[in-house]
Design a protein around this nucleic acid. Structure first.
Length: 836
RNA sequence: GCCCGGGUGGUGGAACUGGUAGACACAAGGGACUUAAAAUCCCUCGGCGGAAACGCUGUGCGGGUUCAAGUCCCGCCUCGGGCACCA
């Protein structure tokens, strides 16, 4: 205990051991206390924490510690998103088993995390690869099936040839796999889908509930991704020999329906073969279809791709005019958006205009700008603005915006369509052709077909005796002890589904499991959910802005509607903070670039407190920041400064010294100034940490307080009143800094004679009058330019300020030859003299 | 093309609802202590001019509103991110 120099290793080990032994951050439901659920996105157990983790969890820990001191019952858990591909890849590479690799990594990472002193309730730790966890997920799957929210469908899917599995749309980035960056191919497969589109409207509309709690850009990204378009579906009949069939078309411009001069179908459209049968150029059309279908997604969707089309020889019938409309195929029409067919209105859509010019199709104007006429022949681009409807039969003369509704209504009345909405969002493919995941609990029976497993038979265990081959293919398909099973319906022999679930299913509900993590008879108890949910503050990287956050919002609604979640719960995460990346030399840290900064190395050198401090001080949390070795040195130096001040000034400290204990009537000006600084600092840090999450400025404020203490300590007396002020400032500095650098603060707190730990101390209050200064510095301006300043009593009124300002020599000098027109006095701030 | 963010010293970044631009740090330079180094402490630090007092100028660019603009309005430039032949 006579340690004089600041040695973080000794201090940090001591306090970490105490927190662990005392289980100090374990919480339980306490209806008398207000709760606060602080959550950081759980990590994939790769085996090593990186600076991004450190930043993420340090932010969360400051919030959790702060809320705890503010009297909240704080749930702050940690766990492992433990299923997924890297475990399989590592297993292949190192000739081990994913289960061994994963659990070893979890142990290693937990140890690393504990060295950072995070205040987690480790008794709630979860790992999604444990049967105790995924059995509930399998149960949810069965319930979703009962509720018609899961279905099986064969369709072209995104296939990653290197991961040997399909990917959800959200996992394809610019045509490449989100994990391994291989080029994604299309492959026809039968897969399981969750009907997220059934919640499209709700997921979109409820974003308004998050407007105050989520970053605008995340909301915008979700809005974009859901991609709602409002318009109408028009049912076109077909002409002549195809009259028994019809083609639906979605359009956002029903007001231009009379301007349709052709129609374009996707080459994949199911009617194509029927339409061209008997057409003399059918073979040319088939060749076109084949050529387009063979193009990969990237070329097909590139914006430089030339628009191409071919006539099918068939015609549709216009629902109002009865005119024949030629049916074309187009390489730009997307098969799985809308109905895979587009009506061509060249006069009012630029792409259709280009297409019509290229293939010599007629252009018909049906909207005119108000007060003008428009001739198809003279146009060199489409007119897409607002105007008055013409050449549109009964709708002539309507404003086109009114026409949208009028046409949709008329379509509906005639049974030829209706107003409708389209989403860009597609249903979520959750099947993965991989081993290391939660088995999908269904079986295939020759007699009964697709049969869900019985709930009492859950979990369907992922067999741990599977041998992982070198080719990366799932060993489950070859494992007869897994595949072979009894049909839950007829009892006969059946085959088990060998696909596993997308790991994003696990992370869609993990936040709820933490509320009751050891429950063996249910996924969670209602009491725990009612008390803890929703998550009050969620913190994680912006890379999950769409994937994980959208899926979790979807799951929350589904689980609520199925009766698992509280009835009034819609949004799982009330507030979201998306932290920026930690860069090195301006680039993302990566092994291949060799610019990785290892947190463990930094902790060894400077201690966890300095690492945490620097991560929070370097930039506001949502911004990217560049790791700087000089910066961490600076953080470490500051902690050393704090240490020295407290060790050296211990004698000045009064045993009863507490935050805000300084007397209001202290005699010395230095003491009064320090007391003011103390209260101002509490105000600033409380606002910055509690509301705005500007930890960088909160830290700056504490630094200022510490600097002020260094400045006055020589000049301060040892009389009781002065000592009380200094003691109070010491207590306040430690308290305010403790969420950020908890170890050193606890240690100094104890050395000052406290027996109660600091982490449970109440957050200090500030006193408005104590923070106020007796003298103020008032800026003096002439015509808005700063010309001097004025020291004056705080209570001086406007007249006094004006008088003092006009008497100021600098002001006099600048107004010498001018006439004073006006004097603007902003009490407490400035006086501006308008002269000319 | 549409939708979100940004642009402030050598660097990271401050500046709450318009009110003294550059807090707090880092780096740099100078000094003190030391046999020396480390550590620590003190001073300087947007640009131009000046010995100084002080003056001019300055928050991507151009306008505007205002007594007063980094902050508000209009028009641009530029960087980052999301969506995109979406019908």
């Amino acid at each position: 205990m006579t340690q004089v120099r600041y040695d973080p290793e000794i201090v940090e080990q001591k306090w970490q051991a105490r927190w662990q032994a005392g289980n100090d951050f374990a919480v339980s439901v306490d209806l008398d206390k207000k709760k606060c659920y602080v959550l950081e996105m759980f990590p994939y157990p790769s085996g090593n924490i990186h600076m991004g983790h450190v930043r993420n969890y340090s932010i969360g820990d400051v919030v959790a510690r702060c809320k705890r001191m503010q009297g909240f019952n704080v749930l702050h858990p940690m766990g492992w998103d433990a299923f997924g591909l890297p475990a399989e890849n590592a297993a292949i590479k190192n000739h081990t088993h994913p289960v061994k690799w994963t659990y070893a990594n979890i142990d290693a990472m937990r140890t690393q995390m504990q060295r950072l002193g995070y205040s987690y309730d480790w008794s709630r730790e979860i790992a999604t690869c444990r049967p105790e966890y995924y059995r509930w997920e399998q149960m949810f799957f069965l319930r979703l099936l009962q509720n018609d929210l899961v279905y099986r469908k064969k369709s072209p899917q995104n296939w990653c040839p290197s991961c040997h599995t399909v990917l959800a749309n959200e996992q394809v980035i610019d045509g490449f796999c989100w994990r391994c960056e291989s080029r994604v191919e299309q492959k026809d497969l039968v897969q399981w889908f969750l009907k997220i589109t059934a919640y499209g409207d709700e997921l979109l509309d409820d974003l308004s509930l998050l407007e105050n709690g989520w970053p605008a850009r995340v909301l915008a990204m979700q809005r974009n991704w859901i991609g709602k378009s409002i318009g109408a579906t028009v049912m076109f009949g077909l002409a002549e020999e195809h009259a028994d069939a019809g083609i639906d078309v979605f359009t956002t411009r029903p007001d231009t329906l009379f301007g349709v001069t052709f129609m374009t179908l996707a080459p994949e459209h199911p009617l194509v073969e029927r339409l061209i049968t008997g057409y003399e150029k059918a073979d040319e059309v088939r060749a076109f279809v084949k050529r387009i279908r063979n193009m990969d997604r990237i070329n097909r969707q590139s914006d430089t791709l030339e628009k191409e089309g071919i006539f099918t020889g068939a015609y549709a019938v216009h629902p109002f005019t009865g005119e024949r409309v030629p049916l074309w195929l187009g390489n730009f029409v997307i098969a799985d958006y809308g109905s895979g067919a587009v009506m061509g209105v060249p006069a009012h859509d630029q792409r259709d205009f280009d297409f019509a010019r290229k293939y010599n199709l007629p252009v018909r104007v049906v909207i005119c700008p108000e007060g003008k006429s428009l001739e198809a022949d003279g146009m060199d681009e489409a007119f897409t603005g607002e105007g008055i409807m013409v050449n549109s039969g009964p709708f002539n003369g309507l404003r086109n915006e009114e026409g949208k509704k009028a046409v949709a209504d008329a379509l509906a009345a005639g049974g030829r369509g209706s107003a409708s909405t389209q989403f860009r969002l597609k249903d979520w493919n959750i099947s993965r052709q991989r081993y290391w995941g939660a088995p999908i609990p269904v079986v295939y029976c020759d007699r009964c077909g697709v049969v869900p497993e019985k709930e009492e038979n859950l979990p369907v265990l992922l067999p741990l005796d599977a041998k992982i081959g070198d080719d990366g293919r799932s060993p489950l398909t070859e494992l007869s002890s897994f595949v072979g099973c009894d049909c839950p319906r007829c009892g006969g022999r059946a085959r088990r589904e060998t696909d596993t679930m997308d790991t994003f299913v696990e992370s869609s509900w993990y936040f709820a499991r933490y509320t009751d993590a050891r429950n063996a008879s249910a996924p969670f108890s209602q009491d725990a959910l009612e008390y803890w949910l929703p998550v009050d503050q969620y913190i994680g990287g912006v890379e999950h802005a769409i994937l994980h956050l959208l899926y979790s919002r979807f799951f929350t609604r589904v689980l609520r509607n199925m009766g698992f979640f509280p009835k009034d719960l819609s949004e799982p995460f009330t507030n979201l903070l998306t932290q920026g990346m930690v860069l090195k030399d301006g680039a993302k840290m990566s092994k291949s670039k060799g610019n990785v900064v290892d947190p463990t190395e930094m902790i060894n050198k400077y201690g966890a407190d300095a690492v945490r401090l620097f991560c929070l001080f370097a930039a506001p949390p949502e911004r990217d920041f560049d790791w700087s070795d000089a910066g961490i040195e600076g953080a470490f130096r500051f902690l050393g400064r704090v240490w020295r001040l407290f060790v050296e000034e211990k004698a000045r400290f009064l045993p009863l010294g507490a935050c805000g204990a300084g007397d209001a009537d202290v005699q010395s000006e230095q003491a009064a100034e320090l007391r003011r600084k103390e209260h101002l600092t509490v105000k600033k840090v409380s606002e910055d940490m509690g509301g705005r999450f500007q930890f960088n400025t909160a830290i700056a404020a504490v630094m200022e307080l510490v600097n002020a203490m260094y400045l006055v300590r020589e000049r301060l007396g040892m009389d009781e009143a002065d000592r009380r002020v200094f003691s109070s400032a010491m207590a306040t500095a430690l308290t305010l800094l403790s969420p950020i650098a908890p170890h050193i603060c606890e240690e100094l707190w104890e050395r000052l004679g406290h027996s109660v730990p600091l982490f449970n101390q109440p957050w200090p209050d500030w006193d408005q009058s104590a923070a106020a200064s007796k003298m103020l510095t008032i800026a003096l301006q002439v015509n808005g330019k700063l010309r001097g300043s004025l020291e004056i009593q705080a209570e001086a009124d406007k007249a006094a300020l004006e008088q003092a300002a006009l008497a100021d020599p600098a002001v006099k000098r600048h107004t010498e030859h001018l006439t004073i027109h006006r004097v603007i006095v902003v009490p407490g701030k400035l006086v501006n003299i308008v002269a000319g």
